[in-house]
Protein backbone atom coordinates (compact mmCIF):
# COMPACT_ATOMS: atom_id res chain seq x y z
CA UNK A 1 0.00 0.00 0.00
CA UNK A 2 1.73 3.07 -1.18
CA UNK A 3 -0.72 5.80 -0.18
CA UNK A 4 -1.02 4.88 3.48
CA UNK A 5 2.37 6.01 4.79
CA UNK A 6 2.27 8.85 2.31
CA UNK A 7 -0.98 10.17 3.69
CA UNK A 8 -0.06 9.43 7.27
CA UNK A 9 2.60 12.14 6.98
CA UNK A 10 -0.27 14.63 6.76
CA UNK A 11 -1.35 13.80 10.28
CA UNK A 12 -3.50 16.27 12.22
CA UNK A 13 -0.77 16.64 14.82
CA UNK A 14 1.36 18.58 12.32
CA UNK A 15 2.83 21.70 13.96
CA UNK A 16 1.15 24.33 11.85
CA UNK A 17 -1.99 23.93 9.84
CA UNK A 18 -1.20 26.81 7.51
CA UNK A 19 2.35 25.60 6.90
CA UNK A 20 0.91 22.22 6.04
CA UNK A 21 -1.60 23.86 3.74
CA UNK A 22 1.16 25.77 1.97
CA UNK A 23 3.18 22.60 1.59
CA UNK A 24 0.15 20.81 0.24
CA UNK A 25 -0.53 23.58 -2.28
CA UNK A 26 3.07 23.66 -3.46
CA UNK A 27 3.13 19.90 -3.82
CA UNK A 28 -0.13 19.79 -5.71
CA UNK A 29 0.93 22.67 -7.95
CA UNK A 30 4.22 20.99 -8.89
CA UNK A 31 2.56 17.63 -9.41
CA UNK A 32 -0.20 19.12 -11.56
CA UNK A 33 2.11 21.04 -13.89
CA UNK A 34 4.40 18.05 -14.18
CA UNK A 35 1.44 15.85 -15.11
CA UNK A 36 0.23 18.33 -17.70
CA UNK A 37 3.75 18.56 -19.12
CA UNK A 38 3.93 14.79 -19.27
CA UNK A 39 0.57 14.51 -20.96
CA UNK A 40 1.37 17.15 -23.59
CA UNK A 41 4.79 15.65 -24.25
CA UNK A 42 3.40 12.18 -24.55
CA UNK A 43 0.64 13.31 -26.91
CA UNK A 44 3.06 15.29 -29.10
CA UNK A 45 5.42 12.32 -29.25
CA UNK A 46 2.61 10.06 -30.35
CA UNK A 47 1.51 12.53 -32.97
CA UNK A 48 4.94 13.52 -34.33
CA UNK A 49 6.66 10.16 -33.67
CA UNK A 50 9.45 11.96 -31.86
CA UNK A 51 9.53 9.81 -28.74
CA UNK A 52 10.94 10.70 -26.28
CA UNK A 53 12.09 14.20 -27.24
CA UNK A 54 8.81 15.98 -26.65
CA UNK A 55 8.13 14.04 -23.49
CA UNK A 56 11.49 15.06 -22.03
CA UNK A 57 11.12 18.63 -23.19
CA UNK A 58 7.67 19.03 -21.75
CA UNK A 59 8.56 17.41 -18.46
CA UNK A 60 11.19 20.12 -18.06
CA UNK A 61 8.74 22.80 -19.16
CA UNK A 62 6.17 21.33 -16.80
CA UNK A 63 8.64 21.56 -13.96
CA UNK A 64 9.35 25.15 -14.96
CA UNK A 65 5.67 25.96 -15.03
CA UNK A 66 5.32 24.36 -11.62
CA UNK A 67 8.10 26.51 -10.22
CA UNK A 68 6.51 29.58 -11.82
CA UNK A 69 3.13 28.73 -10.32
CA UNK A 70 4.68 28.24 -6.90
CA UNK A 71 6.52 31.53 -7.32
CA UNK A 72 3.28 33.30 -8.16
CA UNK A 73 1.65 31.63 -5.18
CA UNK A 74 4.38 32.66 -2.78
CA UNK A 75 5.55 35.97 -4.23
CA UNK A 76 4.69 38.75 -1.80
CA UNK A 77 2.27 41.46 -2.79
CA UNK A 78 0.41 39.34 -5.28
CA UNK A 79 -3.09 37.98 -5.32
CA UNK A 80 -3.32 34.33 -4.32
CA UNK A 81 -3.30 32.15 -7.41
CA UNK A 82 -1.46 34.53 -9.69
CA UNK A 83 -2.17 37.85 -11.29
Amino acid sequence: MDPVPDDASKSPSAPSLSAMGVGMRVGVELLATLMVGLAIGWALDRWLHTSPIMLALFVVLGGGAGVMNVWRLMAPGRMPGGK
Partner: peptide
Amino acid sequence: IPVEIISYLSRPVSLSIRLFAN
Protein backbone atom coordinates in the same frame (compact mmCIF):
# COMPACT_ATOMS: atom_id res chain seq x y z
CA ILE B 1 4.56 30.41 -24.02
CA PRO B 2 4.60 26.63 -23.40
CA VAL B 3 5.20 27.26 -19.71
CA GLU B 4 2.21 29.62 -19.54
CA ILE B 5 0.07 27.14 -21.46
CA ILE B 6 1.10 24.32 -19.14
CA SER B 7 0.45 26.58 -16.18
CA TYR B 8 -3.04 27.36 -17.52
CA LEU B 9 -3.82 23.73 -18.24
CA SER B 10 -2.52 22.67 -14.83
CA ARG B 11 -5.33 24.58 -13.16
CA PRO B 12 -8.00 21.91 -13.49
CA VAL B 13 -5.43 19.24 -12.61
CA SER B 14 -4.29 20.92 -9.40
CA LEU B 15 -7.88 21.86 -8.57
CA SER B 16 -9.09 18.28 -8.87
CA ILE B 17 -6.03 16.63 -7.31
CA ARG B 18 -6.09 18.91 -4.28
CA LEU B 19 -9.67 18.09 -3.38
CA PHE B 20 -9.33 14.42 -4.25
CA ALA B 21 -6.08 13.97 -2.28
CA ASN B 22 -7.39 15.74 0.79
